[in-house]
Design a binder for these strands. Structure first.
Lengths: 212, 212
DNA sequence: GTATGTGAACTATTTCACAGCT
DNA sequence: AGCTGTGAAATAGTTCACATAC
C-alpha cells in the first residue's frame, strides 16, 4: 500500500479496467498485458501500470496480469465486493430515470428508496424502491442501511437536501443539482452537472479549432 | 485573443460564471469583483481571473467587472448567443428523462428529435420532439439542422450510433454509454459515465481517508 | 485604496524510459 | 525476449504575488 496521494482520476479509471476485465473473464482470457488492456480501453500502458502501482504489485514481469486475480483485487480496492444501498432524493424525471437506469443497478449498488416533497408521489414504487417523504429520511436511512445519497432536486433545494442527508449520517453524495454544496469534511460529494456537460459542446461548435 | 491552449476545465467553469452572472443581473447587481463572484461559486479569485484571461481583458482595475457586459461576452465566447438543435438517440429511461429534464432546455439548446431502434416508439412525441427510426438520422439531421447528438443507448450499440451521427454530419456528441468511441478528429465527444460516477463513491466508503 | 491581469512558482498528473524480474 | 514497476522528465493546471490601472 502506497502512501502517496492517489488522484481521483486514477480511481475512476480503475472502474474502467475492472469492467474490461469482467468482459475478458467472460470470454475466458486468462492473462493480459498492460499494453493490450490499455488499448481496449483507450488508455496508455504506462497510465495503467502507474494507476495499479498506487495500490501494489499485481503483475508478473514478462507475462502480464492474471485477469481473474486482478479483477477481484480491483473489486476489493474499489469496494465492489460489498453491497451498498442508495437513496435518490427527488423523484422527478431525472431521479426516476436513474432508478430505472440499468447501469445503476449492479450486484454491488442498489437503489432502495426514493424521497420526494410532492405528497402525491409518496407511497409509489419504482422497482423495489418505495417513495417516502423527505422528513422520514433519517428513519429510512437507518432502517435500510443506506450509504449513498443521490440528489436530483432543483438547485435551490439542493443544499437543504444535502443537510438532511448529512444529518441522517450519509457520507457519500452524488449531486446532480448545478450548485456547490457545503458539507462537513468527512462527507464526500461528487458533482455531475448534466446541463453544463451539454452546454460545453456549444463552445466547441463555435470554436472548432479547440478540439486540437 | 490568446494563443495559449485553453484547458477544458476553464470552459466548463465559464458556464458557472455565466449562470451566476445571470442571477446577479436579475437582482440588479451592476458590478462585481473576481473575489465576490468567485466566492459565490466556490472558486478562487485568481482562478476566475486566469480563466477570463484566456479570452481577453474584461474588467476595470479597482472596480471589477460589469455584470451585463461580462455576461454577454461569455455568452458570445461560449456560443450561447446562438440556437443549437439537439438529437437524442436512445429513447429509453435515461434518454426520455433527458428530453424532459428542465436543465436541458434553454434558449440556446433545444432537443428537436429522438431516435430509437424500437418500432413501437417511433411516431411518439416527447414535448416537441418526435421519435424517428435511426435509419432516418441523416435526413432528420438535415431537415431540422441538428448540431449536437446525445447517445443514450447500451454500450454495445454506442459505436454504431456514433458512426451514424458522424455520417449525418454531427460534430458534437454527448455520450452516456460507458464505452470509448472512435470518431474522426473534427468530431468532439464528451463522455458522461453515470454509473462510474456512482460507483466511484463506493471507493470512498471503503477508503474514507482518501477524502483528504 | 481597491481590484485587475499576468508572469513566475507551485502542485498535480501523465508520459517516458529503462533497470530488473520471469 | 517480453513485460512490469517506478523514478525521472515532461506537461498541464492552479495558486501566488505584485506591477499596473482606475
Amino acid at each position: 500500500m502506497h502512501s502517496k496521494k492517489i488522484p481521483e482520476s486514477t480511481i475512476s479509471r480503475l472502474f474502467v479496467y475492472l469492467r474490461e476485465l469482467t468482459e475478458l473473464e467472460k470470454v475466458n482470457i486468462r492473462t493480459i498485458s498492460s499494453a493490450e488492456l490499455g488499448e481496449r480501453v483507450n488508455l496508455s500502458d504506462a497510465q495503467l501500470r502507474k494507476d495499479l502501482g498506487y495500490f501494489g504489485q499485481f503483475g508478473t514481469s514478462g507475462a502480464g496480469y492474471n485477469v481473474s486475480e486482478l479483477k477481484s483485487t480491483l473489486e476489493k480496492i474499489l469496494g465492489k465486493d460489498k453491497p451498498w444501498n442508495v437513496a435518490v432524493v427527488g423523484a422527478g424525471s431525472l431521479g426516476s430515470a436513474l432508478m430505472r437506469y440499468p447501469g445503476f443497478e449492479n450486484y454491488s449498488l442498489k437503489v432502495v428508496a426514493a424521497f420526494d416533497a410532492d405528497p402525491k408521489k409518496i407511497g409509489k414504487h419504482y422497482g423495489d424502491a418505495g417513495v417516502y417523504a423527505i422528513e422520514d429520511l433519517s428513519k429510512v436511512v437507518r432502517e435500510k442501511k443506506i450509504n449513498i445519497g443521490i440528489i436530483t432536486v432543483p438547485a435551490k433545494n439542493a443544499q437543504e437536501v444535502a443537510d438532511y442527508m448529512v444529518k441522517a449520517g450519509i457520507e457519500c453524495i452524488l449531486n446532480f443539482a448545478p450548485s456547490a454544496l457545503t458539507v462537513p469534511e468527512n462527507v464526500k460529494v461528487k458533482n455531475v452537472d448534466l446541463s453544463r456537460e451539454l452546454e460545453t459542446l456549444s463552445y466547441f461548435l463555435v470554436n472548432p479549432a479547440h478540439s486540437k
